[in-house]
């Protein structure tokens, strides 16, 4: 057990921080939501109901999508783009796609490599891009979840104000969707650029 904690301390610590933050977000969001309900003479909701509301769901997944986008972009960009002197970047001479020998795939796979690394067909291609593929799928999945929870919230507000509701496709071109999307994206891109350049000069 002690060895497990020691060998996996990085994700474990961040898992605990994630759960504490999510709990705090849900409690603060619940309180805020019910304060707004009372201000509009509307019924309040239980904590359990708030956890499965579009209000909380959108707040959660709109941040998730931008984090997965950050890693998807970082994985993709760092194949070709470099920052000389940064330990977040490859060396300039290593820019570009890496060889099968370096990835230990196809005929360069080793005895203890995963089965898909050895096959040499589409499954090996999938395996050698699996980090990018899975991160990209999580990005598009959470962005989709943001769009439908945001759509539901948007239409609920439209109904409250006796205004017309919109279709899901209609919501995707509304400023509400793009303001929530881009406010998260800009901070992720700023963070990546900052990390790349700061690590050249700062220790």
């Amino acid at each position: 057990m002690r060895l497990f904690l020691k060998n996996n301390s990085l994700p474990l610590v961040f898992t605990v921080l994630f759960l504490i933050s999510l709990l705090g977000q849900s409690l603060a969001g619940w309180k805020l939501h019910n304060d707004e309900q009372l201000a509009h003479d509307s019924p309040t909701v239980s904590y359990a109901r708030y956890l499965v509301s579009s209000d909380f769901g959108e707040a959660v997944v709109e941040n998730w999508q931008s984090e997965y986008l950050q890693f998807t972009c970082f994985i993709l960009a760092t194949i070709w783009l470099i920052q000389r002197g940064s330990n977040e970047s490859k060396k300039p001479e290593d820019a570009g796609l890496e060889s099968d020998a370096k990835h230990l795939i196809g005929r360069h796979a080793q005895r203890n490599s995963p089965a898909w690394a050895k096959l040499g067909d589409w499954r090996t291609t999938f395996y050698s891009n699996s980090l990018l593929i899975v991160m990209g799928l999580l990005f598009f999945g959470s962005w989709f979840a943001q769009s439908v929870t945001g759509w539901t919230k948007y239409n609920a507000e439209q109904r409250d104000h006796d205004e017309s509701t919109v279709s899901w496709a209609g919501y995707l071109v509304r400023p509400d969707f793009w303001e929530k999307t881009l406010q998260n994206w800009q901070s992720e891109f700023l963070a990546v650029a900052t990390m790349a350049i700061f690590t050249v000069y700062l220790r």
């Binding site: 996996n8 898992t15 998730w64 989709f144 979840a145 769009s147 759509w151």
Partner: peptide
């Protein structure tokens, strides 16, 4: 190694569960 593999799958299952949950919530409540 089994514990590390379990952590890996946790981080696959956790976001997928959240995404599916809130996609369903969003679609069901509209």
């Amino acid at each position: 190694m089994t514990g590390t593999r379990a952590l890996f799958w946790l981080y696959v299952v956790l976001p997928v569960a959240g995404i599916v949950l809130y996609a369903v919530v969003g679609l069901a409540h509209n």
